[in-house]
Each structure stands twice: as structure tokens, then as C-alpha cells.
Write a protein that binds this DNA or RNA. Structure first.
Lengths: 261, 261
DNA sequence: TAGTGGTCTAGACCACCAC
DNA sequence: TGGTGGTCTAGACCACTAC
């Protein structure tokens, strides 16, 4: 059996990782660290199963995850080979904290926030599946990189999501959603299942940001990512609109063919 | 056993779908068609296994695929429930033939093509991993919807990909890549494994399309999707740059959290 | 023909939830 | 305590590739 990486001390809430995930992690590390260099052949399923003391099925599920992420390629009757690593520095199909994004690009992240409790109308009510008159926390954030304004974001979070643990006054704190995912998962106990996003291009003068916060040429192109986050019960718990002016950062992703999915 | 949807007549080359895929398809159809309405509980793993005469593991793998696509939600100890259908009309993380895209939006698709065999230099050589002097088929296509120019695309396909089956003259035919995926898979015997894409915003006057083909205001925002397609051996076989002016169509996608992947 | 990955099964056991 | 989903195993057999 794999060594249990998490000690089973008293009544810990930490959930033991599944064997599949542990095997995945081990193989992933070996590939990243060069134990299995790109182009090399992975040990066979049987050998890995023997080495790690798990069944071949378990190994196979872990290797499937590697294959999903294009880290290895399996060839029936031949073997499993490590691919050249695909570098996706900024994957559009994953949600990443903007602060981390900026940090990953080598800049010092910062931000300023304007927070309000508002009553919305129109489209946003529908998007968040709220009744008219419902209160919503509106955050307008400007992210800076090395002090320069960089990304503009508008978050809308229905009050019902957090009012059982946070007062309206506390909710106005600028650093409330500093760790975005953690805010929902740990504080609100609302795990984000996924985001549904739309992507479009705009020019700066057609969008609505506080002009005093980010000054750009009116003709600057802006990549707009509007995303709605849903909890496990498929109820919308946040809408977020990111404005990325001037292609300071490009987004990448792996597109698949429908037939491969 | 499931009825084999593909008759096993003589030496057919059609590959039998795996049981998992067949079960997936059956459950998918039942959800889409309303046999299992949204909100309803799926039969248990055991019951489905019995009904379809496969093992629970097989059912589980199929249901996992449904869960991946957010069609169902599993709750341990309770059951598996059909979600509200997420409508993603135009998923950015899937490659879709542009003609189909236009058709799906209710327009009559059309296109015009300018094809050349060229020798590239600079960045595109690197992207396609070619030696200087290598010949490349360059297609510049304008897609129309109900006759109106709509999307501009530039394809670059290295000659080595098709020269063993198609002469250079034939390659200049405007409808060569009409069915894009089929062209590579069936004719060139080069299965496309995936695309690596970058997405950015531009304004019309900053891009390089033949101005005589699509006329837009110079300030029109343009969504630019540049993607490189790789074969199973991770060798680039096509680069494609799509220009979508004016947000005539918006792209959607499901973004996930890294921790959920 | 040997070796490898691909598929599928039966069954054991656990974790969680509702009653 | 019973029902459900979650995990894991051992093993059978098939399909493909290389020799």
C-alpha cells in the first residue's frame, strides 16, 4: 500500500486522497521532475501496479488522467510514452485567482476595491436567479501589476450566499474575496462547482469601467470574460466580469474535438 | 448484453464502441429526451447494471462521463440526480467546424477561399516546426452567413501533411478543407489530437485581413483565436487563425477550478 | 508468439445519508 | 440499519504491435 501521506491523527477532517489520485500525483511528479523524461517509455501497467502495490486498474485510471492532460500518450500494444510538455501558462478553461495570475507573470500584484450593497435589476437578476429587490454585494476591483492598473473586475455576489456568516458591514471590507475560491468554500460553505463563461472582444470606450481607475486609450482592445459560478446544487452564487485591456496577457487553452471527448 | 448497434457484417472496419460509450450514449439520450427529466433521480448503479446487463463498474464509468459534462450530480448515500441542462451553444473549448457553427445559429453558411503554396518565415515556421524553405498551403477563407461576410480565417498546413495523397495543384481547390477534421483524419491519415489555442482581443484596423473581403469599421473589436493542431505524435499539422469581428457570436465555456480537475 | 494496453466483470469493503 | 455511491482488487479475455 502507498504510504499514507496524511497521518490519520485523531478526528481530522482532511479526507484521505484516493489511491488513484496518489498514484497520479507520483507519476505526475516523476514526469515533471524528469525521472521519466519526455519521449521515454513509462513502465508497463503491470510493473507500476507491482511497484506501487496497487492493482492495474488503479494505475490505469491514474494514467488516464495523465493522458487527459496530454502528459503521456498510450499506444496499444506498444507502451505509454511521455509527451513533450505542453506549456499552458494561462489556461482559459481554468479559473485562476487574478492575484496569482499576476504573480505568476512575475509582477507584484495589488488591487483597490469599491464595495457596495446594491439592488440589481434587469439581466443580472436573471443571471443570479434572484427576485427583484434582492440585495447583492457589488465589488469593483482594479488589479495592479507593479503598481500599474492592469485588470478591471466587477463581482456580484448575492447577499444570501454569505449573510449567515458575515454582516453587511463586514462584507464591504475590500479584502473579503481576496482568496476568491476559499471565500466561497471555507467561509460561505458553498463549494464552487464550475463557472459558465462567455468570452468576447470589446474596445475600451464601449465598456463601463470607472474611467478614473484605469486609463486607457479609448481604442484599446479589451478581452471580456464574463462568468457565473455555480454551487453543487447548480445555483448561481457569483457573477464576475473580467476586463483585460490591451492583451497584456494572452489566454491559452487546449481545444478538443467533440469526437474525442 | 447491449444490442450491438453496429452489425458485425463481414470484415467491417468500423470499430465496436466500448460498452462504456454505449451506456453513456443511452443515458445521455434518456436525459436529453426527457425520459429522465431534470431534477429526477437516476436509477441506482445496481439497477442500471442489471437493466443493461453490464457490470456496475461499466455503468459507473459512463455516469462519470455524464458528471464530467455536468449533466448529472452524484450524492454519496443518496443517489444520482439529473441537473438542469447547461446550454453551451458555442463552446470555446471544443473545436467546431465554422460552417456548422454558422448553420447552428440559423444562417446559411458559405465561404470564399484564396489558396496558395508559400514558403514561410519567422514565427510560423517555429510554430509548425518546419525547416526554412518548407512549403506550406496557405488558405485565406471568408465565411459568410446568409451571404454576409462573417468570419475571416487563415489556415497554414505544411505540405508534408498531404503531399503523399494530394498533388500541389489539387491542394489549391477551395473546398479542400471543407470538412476540416475529416480532411486530416480520413484523407491525410493524421488524426488531430488537440489544438493549443490562444485567445485575444484586437481592433479591426490592427489585424491583417484582406480589407477587400470583409469590410468593417476600423474600430470594430475582433476576437482572435489562434490555434495549432497536433497529431497523435504531437507534431503540429495545422495552424489556424480565426478572426471574429463585432461579436456576432459569443463564445461560451465551462471553466473549472484546478482543484476539481 | 510474446508483450502491452483496452475492456469488462464480480465482488469485497467503505463512507455517507436518511430513517 | 438499509440503501446508495465511492474505491479497489484480481483476474479474464481481447486487440494491437513488434519480432
Amino acid at each position: 500500500m502507498l504510504e499514507d501521506s496524511i497521518a490519520q491523527s485523531e478526528n481530522t477532517l482532511i479526507r484521505q486522497q484516493s489511491l488513484v489520485d496518489q498514484v497520479f500525483k507520483i507519476l505526475y511528479e516523476r514526469i515533471i521532475s524528469g525521472v521519466y523524461p519526455s519521449g521515454s517509455k513509462l513502465p508497463t501497467g503491470d510493473r507500476l501496479a507491482e511497484e506501487l502495490n496497487v492493482s492495474r486498474s488503479t494505475v490505469r485510471m491514474a494514467v488516464s488522467k495523465l493522458e487527459d492532460r496530454k502528459l503521456v500518450q498510450r499506444r496499444q500494444g506498444v507502451g505509454t510514452y511521455v509527451r513533450e510538455l505542453i506549456k499552458i501558462p494561462n489556461p482559459l478553461n481554468e479559473f485562476i485567482e487574478l492575484s496569482n495570475l499576476i504573480k505568476d507573470h512575475g509582477y507584484q500584484p495589488g488591487y483597490s476595491t469599491l464595495a457596495d450593497i446594491v439592488e440589481l435589476d434587469g439581466e443580472m437578476l436573471e443571471i443570479l436567479q434572484l427576485q427583484p429587490g434582492s440585495k447583492v454585494l457589488q465589488q469593483r476591483k482594479v488589479f495592479t501589476a507593479d503598481g500599474d492598473p492592469f485588470i478591471y473586475v466587477v463581482n456580484h455576489i448575492p447577499v444570501w450566499v454569505f449573510e449567515h456568516v458575515i454582516s453587511l458591514e463586514e462584507a464591504l471590507k475590500p479584502d473579503l474575496t481576496d482568496k476568491f475560491v476559499e471565500f466561497f468554500e471555507v467561509i460561505c460553505k458553498q463549494k464552487i462547482s464550475h463557472f459558465v463563461s462567455t468570452v468576447r472582444a470589446e474596445i475600451y470606450e464601449n465598456i463601463d469601467p470607472p474611467k478614473e481607475l484605469v486609463d486607457n486609450e479609448p481604442q484599446t482592445p479589451v478581452l471580456v470574460i464574463n462568468e457565473t459560478g455555480f454551487n453543487e446544487e447548480a445555483r448561481p452564487i457569483v457573477n464576475s466580469c473580467e476586463f483585460h485591456p490591451g492583451n497584456w496577457m494572452t489566454f491559452q487553452m487546449i481545444r478538443r474535438l467533440r469526437s474525442n471527448m
